[in-house]
């Protein structure tokens, strides 16, 4: 464990908790938040942590896996079940066909994995899925331009998580003799590029919104 990875995990957790708090605590509507992206994230954790009960890495690792699964499912539950929130979720805007993404990632995982076992294929699937899970949110943001519920902190922590993980991989590459995580690194770079695109549209929406608000 290095400080970059620990900080990356913490900022990742913070981004999830900020979104959960925003949706649940303020009972605010979930306009502008893509339920599909949140469902894909929950699926990423569920398929990645299948080894939760078979391989023990550390207490930190086991606890964080439970926290990630619980918090991501809590967001999905809130957006699907919570009477106040679900009414406001605009499903006719959140129309990204994520089935295709699921299928593409699964086929890719069947072709590209470290070892052809059930857990390893689903681990690779979760890595690819995490890279593209932001797409429904990106499309929704391009359509709605609404950043009210996607607070700046959420985007900030999401970016910090990606940046710190890339530094973590560079650090491990130079300090550990045979550190090769090609699947995670290449997919992580694709994910970071998509996040950069998301941040760009977030900034544009935020800028136009502030301009719109000015004359009022």
């Amino acid at each position: 464990m290095n400080i970059f990875r620990f900080a990356g995990d913490m900022t990742h957790l913070m981004s999830i908790l900020i979104l959960l708090l925003k949706i649940y605590a303020t009972k605010s509507c979930a306009v502008g938040i893509s339920l599909k992206t949140q469902e894909l994230y929950a699926l990423v954790f569920l398929t990645r942590y299948l080894d939760q009960f078979t391989d023990y890495v550390s207490l930190y690792n086991s606890v964080m896996k439970v926290v990630f699964i619980a918090s991501s499912l809590a967001i999905v539950w809130c957006m699907r079940r919570h009477p106040l929130v679900r009414k406001s979720y605009d499903k006719d805007l959140d129309t990204f066909r994520h089935q295709y993404v699921l299928l593409a990632c699964f086929v890719l995982a069947l072709l590209l994995h470290e070892i052809f076992t059930f857990q390893e294929v689903f681990w690779a699937f979760s890595i690819y899925l995490e890279a593209v899970a932001i797409l429904p949110q990106l499309v929704l943001l391009q359509r709605s331009g609404n950043v009210d519920n996607l607070t700046g902190q959420y985007v900030l922590f999401l970016g910090a998580y990606r940046g710190l993980y890339i530094i973590n991989w560079i650090y491990r590459y130079f300090t550990e003799d045979h550190f090769t995580r090609w699947i995670a690194c290449v997919s992580g770079l694709v994910q970071t590029a998509l996040y950069a695109d998301f941040f760009y549209y977030y900034y544009l929406s935020w800028k136009t919104n502030t301009k719109l608000k000015l004359p009022a």
Binding site: D9, R48, V57, S58, N61, K65, E114, E120, T180, R181
Partner: peptide
Amino acid sequence: EDEAPTKDEL
């Protein structure tokens, strides 16, 4: 056979 490295990252 070479074992896949343990998945120590979250």
